[in-house]
Structure formats: structure tokens, C-alpha cells
């Protein structure tokens, strides 16, 4: 099913651990709207290969592809697990520190 949907690469940055996305310039951004989108499996493979090289080079950890929908100005993951991963906990973070 994955191949019918647009895809992006998600990973964690090694040094701080935060979620990052592969960008069009082969860099990494913490903003999902900067993610470069693959529209077919061949493109997706290319992105994943580039991301795995970044993992080998100790920039990121555990890169993988996720399916997204393109609505609004940012890709939106179709699975709820990845949706939470991209947009943060679905519950309010305790505040008033």
C-alpha cells in the first residue's frame, strides 16, 4: 500500500535525538514542511539510500519511509503512530514550570 502514497523519510538526529526529516538538499530539518516528498517507490528508494548514508555517517539514527498525504502546507502521515511522532504528543505537555 505504501507505494500508492507519497512518502517522506523520518529519523532522529544523533546528537540531540529529536525527530528530523530528509530535505530536498539532502539535509535534515526538524520541520515536516521541509521534508522532500517521494511520489513513487523508485524515488522513495533513492531518498532512503541517501538517509541510510547519513546514518552511516552518524548524523541520524534509524531512518525509514512513512506514507503521507499532501494537504495544507505540510505532509501529514497517514498512520496515527507516525502522526504523533511528527506532530508531538496528542496530550498537553504539563506547563507552568
Amino acid at each position: 500500500m505504501l507505494s500508492l502514497m507519497p512518502q517522506i523519510v523520518i529519523a532522529n538526529s544523533l546528537a540531540d535525538g529529536f525527530v528530523v526529516f530528509l530535505t530536498a538538499s539532502n539535509g535534515w530539518s526538524s520541520r515536516v514542511r521541509d521534508a522532500t516528498v517521494a511520489h513513487d517507490d523508485a524515488d522513495a528508494e533513492v531518498l532512503l539510500r541517501s538517509a541510510k548514508a547519513a546514518a552511516e555517517n552518524n548524523l541520524v539514527i534509524d531512518p525509514y519511509l512513512i506514507a503521507v498525504e499532501l494537504k495544507g502546507d505540510a505532509p501529514e502521515p497517514t498512520e496515527y503512530r507516525e502522526y504523533i511522532r511528527v506532530f508531538g504528543p496528542s496530550v498537553a505537555i504539563p506547563s507552568g514550570q
Partner: peptide
């Protein structure tokens, strides 16, 4: 005690 979780370490 350091895990990599959904969002971060």
C-alpha cells in the same frame, strides 16, 4: 537508562 523513544531520547 537512555532510550530512543518516539520523539527523542
Amino acid at each position: 537508562g537512555l532510550y530512543l523513544q518516539l520523539h527523542a531520547y
